[in-house]
């Protein structure tokens, strides 16, 4: 992949909207293009987390193993969204398994590379973290709504 193409791809990803040209150059050093076949496991729960994915197309399902029920999918990440921030937070291990539900293309950003750049350039670090915080907030809000189980009426809760 040519560097110019990768730059364009990065510039087009919504996560990086408004990212300065200078910080984009910093990011480029950690970036590469990846593609996953349908059903490919991207990473597993418990493994070392060292990549930050910007999903370009397709869909990634987040799974948690439910002993007795098998793997349950609790979230999907689609085009324009991001996958995984455990590379940022010690002990740098994945808390869930990620599987490509359909063929998926993404930009992979090396975790250690990103961590080092965040540390050495705090302006860059702030930019990345601010965007991550926004993603986390919207993910949390969505999770809360999913938790409410608003479509399901549990019969015992219905008062006659």
């Amino acid at each position: 992949m040519h560097t110019e193409d990768l730059t364009t791809t990065l510039q087009q990803h919504p996560f990086l909207a408004g990212f300065s040209e200078e910080h984009m150059k910093t990011l480029l050093g950690c970036a590469s293009n990846v593609r996953f076949m349908e059903n490919a496991t991207i990473f597993r729960e418990g493994e070392i987390a060292n990549t930050f994915y910007l999903v370009r197309s397709g869909r990634v399902a987040l799974e948690i193993d439910f002993p007795g029920r098998g793997a349950m999918r609790i979230q999907t990440v689609g085009p324009g969204e991001v996958l995984g921030w455990s590379w940022l937070i010690s002990p740098y291990r994945w808390h869930f398994t990620a599987v490509a539900a359909v063929e998926t293309r993404a930009i992979a950003l090396d975790g250690e590379c990103l961590r080092n750049k965040c540390e050495s350039d705090s302006g860059f670090g702030y930019d990345v973290l601010l965007r991550l915080a926004q993603v986390m907030e919207s993910r949390l809000e969505a999770t809360r709504l999913q938790l409410l189980d608003m479509y399901g009426l549990i019969t015992s809760e219905v008062r006659k």
């Binding site: 399902a61 799974e63 999918r73 999907t76 689609g78 189980d149």
Partner: peptide
């Protein structure tokens, strides 16, 4: 179409319906 949760046979979206606006 999205669901609040599914098993591995579900290849569609998982999450709240408002999340679909992103796509």
């Amino acid at each position: 179409v999205t669901v609040d949760r599914g098993d591995t046979s579900w290849k569609g979206h998982i999450g709240v319906v408002t999340g679909l606006f992103n796509y």
